[in-house]
Design a protein around this nucleic acid. Structure first.
Lengths: 192, 192
DNA sequence: TCACTTGTCTAGCGGTGCTAGGATCGGGTC
DNA sequence: GACCCGATCCTAGCACCGCTAGACAAGTGA
Protein backbone atom coordinates (compact mmCIF):
# COMPACT_ATOMS: atom_id res chain seq x y z
CA UNK A 1 0.00 0.00 0.00
CA UNK A 2 2.69 2.42 -1.00
CA UNK A 3 0.20 4.83 -2.54
CA UNK A 4 -1.69 5.15 0.67
CA UNK A 5 1.52 5.71 2.60
CA UNK A 6 2.51 8.50 0.27
CA UNK A 7 -0.90 10.10 0.72
CA UNK A 8 -0.60 9.92 4.45
CA UNK A 9 2.84 11.49 4.30
CA UNK A 10 1.54 14.32 2.15
CA UNK A 11 -1.41 14.80 4.43
CA UNK A 12 0.83 14.99 7.48
CA UNK A 13 3.07 17.47 5.67
CA UNK A 14 0.11 19.66 4.87
CA UNK A 15 -1.04 19.55 8.47
CA UNK A 16 2.40 20.72 9.59
CA UNK A 17 2.19 23.43 6.95
CA UNK A 18 -1.14 24.62 8.36
CA UNK A 19 0.17 24.82 11.91
CA UNK A 20 3.42 26.50 10.86
CA UNK A 21 1.57 29.01 8.70
CA UNK A 22 -0.92 29.82 11.43
CA UNK A 23 1.94 30.40 13.84
CA UNK A 24 3.83 32.55 11.39
CA UNK A 25 0.80 34.63 10.56
CA UNK A 26 -0.02 35.06 14.24
CA UNK A 27 3.51 36.18 15.06
CA UNK A 28 3.52 38.58 12.14
CA UNK A 29 0.09 40.17 12.50
CA UNK A 30 -1.47 38.83 15.68
CA UNK A 31 -4.06 36.13 16.17
CA UNK A 32 -6.88 38.39 15.04
CA UNK A 33 -5.36 38.29 11.58
CA UNK A 34 -5.38 34.49 11.56
CA UNK A 35 -8.69 33.90 9.84
CA UNK A 36 -9.56 30.69 8.09
CA UNK A 37 -9.73 32.55 4.79
CA UNK A 38 -6.29 34.09 5.09
CA UNK A 39 -4.82 30.88 6.39
CA UNK A 40 -6.31 28.92 3.51
CA UNK A 41 -4.99 31.42 1.01
CA UNK A 42 -1.47 31.24 2.46
CA UNK A 43 -1.29 27.47 2.26
CA UNK A 44 -2.80 27.69 -1.23
CA UNK A 45 -5.79 25.51 -0.49
CA UNK A 46 -9.44 26.33 -0.02
CA UNK A 47 -10.98 26.92 3.41
CA UNK A 48 -12.70 23.53 3.80
CA UNK A 49 -9.34 21.78 3.63
CA UNK A 50 -8.54 23.20 7.06
CA UNK A 51 -11.61 21.46 8.42
CA UNK A 52 -10.47 18.12 7.10
CA UNK A 53 -7.46 18.43 9.41
CA UNK A 54 -8.89 20.30 12.39
CA UNK A 55 -12.34 20.53 13.91
CA UNK A 56 -12.12 24.32 13.78
CA UNK A 57 -9.98 27.32 14.39
CA UNK A 58 -9.73 26.53 18.09
CA UNK A 59 -8.03 23.24 17.33
CA UNK A 60 -5.50 24.99 15.12
CA UNK A 61 -4.65 27.29 18.01
CA UNK A 62 -4.37 24.23 20.21
CA UNK A 63 -1.91 22.65 17.79
CA UNK A 64 0.26 25.77 17.84
CA UNK A 65 0.06 25.79 21.62
CA UNK A 66 1.17 22.17 21.87
CA UNK A 67 4.11 22.85 19.59
CA UNK A 68 5.01 25.85 21.72
CA UNK A 69 4.89 23.92 24.97
CA UNK A 70 7.21 21.29 23.56
CA UNK A 71 9.62 23.93 22.33
CA UNK A 72 9.62 25.74 25.62
CA UNK A 73 10.30 22.51 27.48
CA UNK A 74 13.36 21.95 25.31
CA UNK A 75 14.52 25.53 25.85
CA UNK A 76 14.10 25.26 29.62
CA UNK A 77 15.96 21.96 29.85
CA UNK A 78 18.76 23.22 27.66
CA UNK A 79 19.18 26.34 29.77
CA UNK A 80 19.00 24.62 33.14
CA UNK A 81 21.31 21.76 32.19
CA UNK A 82 23.97 24.28 31.24
CA UNK A 83 23.79 25.94 34.66
CA UNK A 84 25.80 24.93 37.71
CA UNK A 85 24.05 24.78 41.04
CA UNK A 86 20.41 25.07 42.09
CA UNK A 87 20.37 28.83 42.18
CA UNK A 88 21.85 29.26 38.73
CA UNK A 89 19.41 26.70 37.39
CA UNK A 90 16.39 28.54 38.75
CA UNK A 91 17.63 31.89 37.47
CA UNK A 92 18.31 30.42 34.05
CA UNK A 93 14.87 28.85 34.03
CA UNK A 94 13.14 32.10 34.88
CA UNK A 95 15.08 34.08 32.29
CA UNK A 96 14.50 31.47 29.61
CA UNK A 97 10.79 31.31 30.37
CA UNK A 98 10.33 35.06 30.11
CA UNK A 99 12.52 35.27 27.05
CA UNK A 100 10.45 32.60 25.33
CA UNK A 101 7.27 34.51 26.10
CA UNK A 102 8.77 37.72 24.80
CA UNK A 103 10.18 36.25 21.61
CA UNK A 104 7.13 34.16 20.79
CA UNK A 105 4.22 36.29 21.95
CA UNK A 106 1.65 34.72 19.66
CA UNK A 107 2.68 31.21 20.60
CA UNK A 108 2.60 32.15 24.27
CA UNK A 109 -0.89 33.51 23.77
CA UNK A 110 -1.95 30.26 22.16
CA UNK A 111 -0.50 28.36 25.11
CA UNK A 112 -2.03 30.31 27.96
CA UNK A 113 -4.14 33.23 26.85
CA UNK A 114 -6.37 31.88 24.10
CA UNK A 115 -8.76 29.01 24.15
CA UNK A 116 -7.08 26.20 22.31
CA UNK A 117 -9.38 23.61 23.79
CA UNK A 118 -6.57 21.98 25.71
CA UNK A 119 -7.20 20.30 29.05
CA UNK A 120 -4.67 21.13 31.74
CA UNK A 121 -4.27 19.43 35.08
CA UNK A 122 -6.66 16.64 34.13
CA UNK A 123 -6.26 12.96 33.29
CA UNK A 124 -6.72 13.62 29.56
CA UNK A 125 -4.01 16.25 29.52
CA UNK A 126 -1.86 15.79 26.40
CA UNK A 127 1.62 14.42 27.02
CA UNK A 128 3.55 17.56 25.94
CA UNK A 129 1.69 19.59 28.53
CA UNK A 130 2.54 17.22 31.35
CA UNK A 131 6.12 17.18 30.14
CA UNK A 132 6.23 20.96 30.07
CA UNK A 133 5.23 21.11 33.70
CA UNK A 134 7.75 18.38 34.41
CA UNK A 135 10.49 20.53 32.90
CA UNK A 136 9.62 23.26 35.37
CA UNK A 137 9.38 20.81 38.24
CA UNK A 138 12.84 19.37 37.61
CA UNK A 139 14.60 22.60 38.45
CA UNK A 140 12.10 24.18 40.79
CA UNK A 141 11.33 21.15 42.92
CA UNK A 142 14.84 21.14 44.37
CA UNK A 143 14.46 24.65 45.78
CA UNK A 144 10.95 24.28 47.18
CA UNK A 145 12.27 24.25 50.72
CA UNK A 146 11.63 21.88 53.62
CA UNK A 147 8.08 20.74 54.13
CA UNK A 148 6.84 22.37 50.97
CA UNK A 149 5.31 20.23 48.28
CA UNK A 150 7.53 20.58 45.17
CA UNK A 151 4.48 20.51 42.89
CA UNK A 152 2.78 23.28 44.81
CA UNK A 153 5.94 25.35 44.83
CA UNK A 154 6.35 24.88 41.10
CA UNK A 155 2.79 26.04 40.54
CA UNK A 156 3.37 29.23 42.51
CA UNK A 157 6.68 29.99 40.84
CA UNK A 158 5.18 29.29 37.46
CA UNK A 159 2.22 31.55 38.21
CA UNK A 160 4.60 34.36 39.12
CA UNK A 161 6.51 33.92 35.87
CA UNK A 162 3.29 33.79 33.93
CA UNK A 163 2.08 36.95 35.61
CA UNK A 164 5.32 38.76 34.83
CA UNK A 165 5.20 37.57 31.22
CA UNK A 166 1.63 38.60 30.55
CA UNK A 167 1.61 41.87 32.48
CA UNK A 168 4.87 42.96 30.89
CA UNK A 169 3.72 42.15 27.39
CA UNK A 170 0.32 43.77 27.91
CA UNK A 171 2.07 47.00 28.82
CA UNK A 172 1.05 46.72 32.45
CA UNK A 173 4.63 46.64 33.71
CA UNK A 174 7.47 48.81 32.44
CA UNK A 175 9.92 46.52 30.62
CA UNK A 176 13.00 48.34 31.81
CA UNK A 177 13.17 46.67 35.24
CA UNK A 178 12.38 43.17 34.01
CA UNK A 179 15.73 41.74 35.08
CA UNK A 180 15.48 43.12 38.60
CA UNK A 181 12.04 41.58 38.98
CA UNK A 182 13.46 38.20 38.07
CA UNK A 183 16.23 38.59 40.62
CA UNK A 184 13.76 39.55 43.31
CA UNK A 185 11.51 36.63 42.47
CA UNK A 186 14.33 34.09 42.56
CA UNK A 187 15.86 35.59 45.71
CA UNK A 188 12.64 35.41 47.65
CA UNK A 189 10.79 32.38 46.37
CA UNK A 190 13.60 29.87 45.96
CA UNK A 191 15.08 28.40 49.14
CA UNK A 192 18.76 28.06 48.42
CA UNK B 1 -30.73 75.59 30.18
CA UNK B 2 -32.62 73.02 32.18
CA UNK B 3 -33.61 71.06 29.12
CA UNK B 4 -30.03 70.49 28.12
CA UNK B 5 -29.10 69.45 31.64
CA UNK B 6 -31.88 66.90 31.66
CA UNK B 7 -30.68 65.54 28.34
CA UNK B 8 -27.16 65.24 29.63
CA UNK B 9 -28.40 63.43 32.70
CA UNK B 10 -30.37 61.00 30.57
CA UNK B 11 -27.38 60.50 28.32
CA UNK B 12 -25.13 59.76 31.27
CA UNK B 13 -27.72 57.35 32.64
CA UNK B 14 -27.86 55.53 29.35
CA UNK B 15 -24.10 55.28 29.23
CA UNK B 16 -24.10 53.70 32.68
CA UNK B 17 -26.83 51.35 31.47
CA UNK B 18 -24.67 50.28 28.55
CA UNK B 19 -21.67 49.53 30.74
CA UNK B 20 -23.73 47.75 33.38
CA UNK B 21 -25.53 45.68 30.76
CA UNK B 22 -22.31 44.74 29.02
CA UNK B 23 -20.85 43.65 32.33
CA UNK B 24 -23.94 41.68 33.28
CA UNK B 25 -24.10 39.97 29.91
CA UNK B 26 -20.39 39.16 30.07
CA UNK B 27 -20.69 37.65 33.54
CA UNK B 28 -23.73 35.63 32.52
CA UNK B 29 -22.59 34.30 29.17
CA UNK B 30 -18.99 35.37 28.66
CA UNK B 31 -17.52 38.18 26.58
CA UNK B 32 -18.07 36.26 23.35
CA UNK B 33 -21.79 36.71 23.92
CA UNK B 34 -21.41 40.46 24.27
CA UNK B 35 -22.07 41.49 20.69
CA UNK B 36 -23.16 44.97 19.73
CA UNK B 37 -26.47 43.58 18.52
CA UNK B 38 -27.30 41.71 21.72
CA UNK B 39 -26.15 44.63 23.82
CA UNK B 40 -28.29 47.05 21.83
CA UNK B 41 -31.28 44.79 22.17
CA UNK B 42 -30.87 44.51 25.92
CA UNK B 43 -30.73 48.24 26.45
CA UNK B 44 -33.67 48.60 24.06
CA UNK B 45 -31.89 50.87 21.61
CA UNK B 46 -30.51 50.30 18.17
CA UNK B 47 -26.88 49.42 17.55
CA UNK B 48 -25.67 52.84 16.38
CA UNK B 49 -26.61 54.33 19.76
CA UNK B 50 -23.71 52.43 21.26
CA UNK B 51 -21.38 54.21 18.89
CA UNK B 52 -22.64 57.59 20.00
CA UNK B 53 -21.30 56.76 23.47
CA UNK B 54 -18.24 54.67 22.68
CA UNK B 55 -15.86 54.48 19.78
CA UNK B 56 -16.41 50.76 19.53
CA UNK B 57 -16.71 47.53 21.41
CA UNK B 58 -13.17 47.83 22.73
CA UNK B 59 -14.04 51.05 24.51
CA UNK B 60 -17.04 49.42 26.15
CA UNK B 61 -14.74 46.70 27.48
CA UNK B 62 -12.43 49.45 28.68
CA UNK B 63 -15.26 51.12 30.56
CA UNK B 64 -16.12 47.86 32.30
CA UNK B 65 -12.45 47.40 33.13
CA UNK B 66 -12.19 50.85 34.66
CA UNK B 67 -15.24 50.20 36.79
CA UNK B 68 -13.74 46.91 37.88
CA UNK B 69 -10.40 48.44 38.85
CA UNK B 70 -12.15 51.02 41.00
CA UNK B 71 -14.24 48.34 42.69
CA UNK B 72 -11.24 46.17 43.34
CA UNK B 73 -9.36 49.09 44.87
CA UNK B 74 -12.23 49.62 47.29
CA UNK B 75 -12.36 45.92 48.13
CA UNK B 76 -8.60 45.78 48.75
CA UNK B 77 -8.57 48.87 50.98
CA UNK B 78 -11.56 47.63 52.95
CA UNK B 79 -9.93 44.25 53.54
CA UNK B 80 -6.49 45.58 54.46
CA UNK B 81 -7.77 48.31 56.74
CA UNK B 82 -9.65 45.71 58.76
CA UNK B 83 -6.47 43.67 59.28
CA UNK B 84 -3.99 44.15 62.12
CA UNK B 85 -0.29 44.04 61.34
CA UNK B 86 1.66 43.96 58.09
CA UNK B 87 1.45 40.24 57.63
CA UNK B 88 -2.31 40.09 58.12
CA UNK B 89 -2.71 42.97 55.71
CA UNK B 90 -0.76 41.26 52.97
CA UNK B 91 -2.62 38.00 53.44
CA UNK B 92 -5.95 39.80 53.38
CA UNK B 93 -4.90 41.65 50.25
CA UNK B 94 -3.90 38.47 48.45
CA UNK B 95 -7.08 36.65 49.40
CA UNK B 96 -9.27 39.60 48.43
CA UNK B 97 -7.52 39.99 45.10
CA UNK B 98 -7.99 36.34 44.16
CA UNK B 99 -11.55 36.32 45.43
CA UNK B 100 -12.39 39.34 43.31
CA UNK B 101 -10.96 37.64 40.25
CA UNK B 102 -12.90 34.48 40.99
CA UNK B 103 -16.22 36.19 41.65
CA UNK B 104 -15.99 38.62 38.74
CA UNK B 105 -14.27 36.62 36.02
CA UNK B 106 -15.63 38.68 33.14
CA UNK B 107 -14.66 41.95 34.78
CA UNK B 108 -11.22 40.58 35.57
CA UNK B 109 -10.86 39.58 31.93
CA UNK B 110 -11.81 43.07 30.85
CA UNK B 111 -9.21 44.48 33.24
CA UNK B 112 -6.24 42.34 32.31
CA UNK B 113 -6.98 39.74 29.68
CA UNK B 114 -8.88 41.56 26.96
CA UNK B 115 -7.90 44.60 25.01
CA UNK B 116 -9.89 47.47 26.43
CA UNK B 117 -7.60 50.03 24.90
CA UNK B 118 -6.38 51.21 28.30
CA UNK B 119 -2.87 52.52 28.78
CA UNK B 120 -1.07 51.19 31.82
CA UNK B 121 2.14 52.45 33.28
CA UNK B 122 2.16 55.51 31.04
CA UNK B 123 1.59 59.19 31.58
CA UNK B 124 -1.89 59.04 30.09
CA UNK B 125 -2.92 56.22 32.39
CA UNK B 126 -6.46 56.86 33.67
CA UNK B 127 -6.68 57.87 37.30
CA UNK B 128 -8.56 54.75 38.54
CA UNK B 129 -5.73 52.59 37.22
CA UNK B 130 -3.06 54.53 39.04
CA UNK B 131 -5.20 54.40 42.17
CA UNK B 132 -5.64 50.66 41.82
CA UNK B 133 -1.89 50.19 41.80
CA UNK B 134 -1.65 52.59 44.72
CA UNK B 135 -4.04 50.40 46.69
CA UNK B 136 -1.68 47.48 46.18
CA UNK B 137 1.37 49.59 46.99
CA UNK B 138 -0.05 50.79 50.31
CA UNK B 139 -0.02 47.34 51.85
CA UNK B 140 2.75 45.70 49.88
CA UNK B 141 5.27 48.52 50.05
CA UNK B 142 5.74 48.06 53.78
CA UNK B 143 6.87 44.44 53.38
CA UNK B 144 9.21 44.94 50.44
CA UNK B 145 12.24 44.46 52.65
CA UNK B 146 15.40 46.51 53.04
CA UNK B 147 16.94 47.90 49.91
CA UNK B 148 14.09 46.76 47.70
CA UNK B 149 12.12 49.32 45.76
CA UNK B 150 8.52 49.16 47.04
CA UNK B 151 7.16 49.74 43.55
CA UNK B 152 9.22 46.94 42.09
CA UNK B 153 8.20 44.60 44.90
CA UNK B 154 4.55 45.47 44.35
CA UNK B 155 4.87 44.70 40.68
CA UNK B 156 6.32 41.28 41.37
CA UNK B 157 3.76 40.42 44.04
CA UNK B 158 0.97 41.65 41.81
CA UNK B 159 2.28 39.57 38.89
CA UNK B 160 2.27 36.50 41.10
CA UNK B 161 -1.32 37.13 42.14
CA UNK B 162 -2.29 37.76 38.55
CA UNK B 163 -0.64 34.53 37.47
CA UNK B 164 -2.43 32.56 40.15
CA UNK B 165 -5.75 34.17 39.26
CA UNK B 166 -5.53 33.52 35.54
CA UNK B 167 -3.96 30.08 35.63
CA UNK B 168 -6.46 28.89 38.22
CA UNK B 169 -9.43 30.19 36.31
CA UNK B 170 -8.16 28.82 33.00
CA UNK B 171 -8.05 25.36 34.54
CA UNK B 172 -4.27 25.34 34.52
CA UNK B 173 -4.01 24.93 38.31
CA UNK B 174 -6.18 22.67 40.45
CA UNK B 175 -8.39 24.96 42.59
CA UNK B 176 -8.22 22.74 45.65
CA UNK B 177 -4.85 23.99 46.89
CA UNK B 178 -5.50 27.66 46.21
CA UNK B 179 -5.26 28.66 49.86
CA UNK B 180 -1.94 26.90 50.36
CA UNK B 181 -0.51 28.68 47.34
CA UNK B 182 -1.47 32.02 48.86
CA UNK B 183 0.20 31.09 52.13
CA UNK B 184 3.36 30.05 50.34
CA UNK B 185 3.41 33.24 48.33
CA UNK B 186 2.98 35.49 51.35
CA UNK B 187 5.45 33.50 53.44
CA UNK B 188 8.20 33.73 50.88
CA UNK B 189 7.74 37.04 49.14
CA UNK B 190 6.82 39.33 52.03
CA UNK B 191 9.62 40.29 54.43
CA UNK B 192 7.96 40.36 57.83
C1' DT C 1 -11.58 1.69 -20.53
C1' DC C 2 -14.73 2.40 -17.14
C1' DA C 3 -16.95 2.75 -12.54
C1' DC C 4 -16.10 4.47 -8.22
C1' DT C 5 -13.97 6.41 -4.32
C1' DT C 6 -11.54 10.14 -2.59
C1' DG C 7 -10.39 14.67 -2.30
C1' DT C 8 -11.10 19.55 -3.30
C1' DC C 9 -13.56 23.63 -4.49
C1' DT C 10 -17.45 26.92 -5.19
C1' DA C 11 -21.05 28.99 -3.08
C1' DG C 12 -23.62 30.19 0.71
C1' DC C 13 -25.47 30.39 5.69
C1' DG C 14 -25.91 33.01 9.81
C1' DG C 15 -23.25 35.72 12.44
C1' DT C 16 -19.82 39.77 13.58
C1' DG C 17 -18.28 45.08 14.22
C1' DC C 18 -19.31 49.19 12.31
C1' DT C 19 -21.51 53.16 9.40
C1' DA C 20 -24.14 56.02 5.87
C1' DG C 21 -28.23 58.28 5.19
C1' DG C 22 -33.05 58.97 5.81
C1' DA C 23 -36.96 59.58 9.13
C1' DT C 24 -38.74 61.43 13.28
C1' DC C 25 -39.26 63.90 17.26
C1' DG C 26 -38.89 67.77 20.33
C1' DG C 27 -37.31 72.65 21.53
C1' DG C 28 -37.00 77.49 20.38
C1' DT C 29 -39.01 81.26 17.83
C1' DC C 30 -42.42 84.05 15.79
C1' DG D 1 -50.47 77.79 18.76
C1' DA D 2 -47.91 76.86 14.33
C1' DC D 3 -43.73 76.33 12.18
C1' DC D 4 -38.86 75.53 11.38
C1' DC D 5 -34.78 73.30 12.27
C1' DG D 6 -31.36 70.75 14.53
C1' DA D 7 -30.45 66.86 17.39
C1' DT D 8 -31.38 62.04 17.81
C1' DC D 9 -32.38 57.60 16.48
C1' DC D 10 -33.30 53.72 13.35
C1' DT D 11 -33.26 51.02 9.00
C1' DA D 12 -30.45 49.01 5.91
C1' DG D 13 -26.24 47.61 4.40
C1' DC D 14 -21.03 47.03 4.10
C1' DA D 15 -17.11 43.76 4.49
C1' DC D 16 -15.68 40.35 7.09
C1' DC D 17 -15.94 36.15 10.23
C1' DG D 18 -16.26 30.65 11.21
C1' DC D 19 -18.15 26.93 9.23
C1' DT D 20 -20.62 23.56 5.83
C1' DA D 21 -23.48 21.42 1.96
C1' DG D 22 -23.17 19.77 -2.35
C1' DA D 23 -21.17 19.92 -7.01
C1' DC D 24 -17.25 18.54 -9.37
C1' DA D 25 -12.74 16.65 -10.80
C1' DA D 26 -8.91 13.71 -10.27
C1' DG D 27 -6.80 9.55 -9.22
C1' DT D 28 -7.59 4.37 -8.13
C1' DG D 29 -8.45 -0.46 -8.92
C1' DA D 30 -10.97 -3.76 -11.73
Amino acid sequence: MSVQERKERERAARERLIVATARELAEQQGWDAVTTRRLAERIEYSQPVLYSHFRGKREIIGAVALEGVAEMAVALRTATSAADGARARVTALARTYLEFAERNPAVYDAMFQLDGGLAFAAEDTPEPLKDGFAALLESLGEVAGDGVNPGLFTEVFWAALHGLATLTRAGRLPPAEAERRVELLVDRLAMI
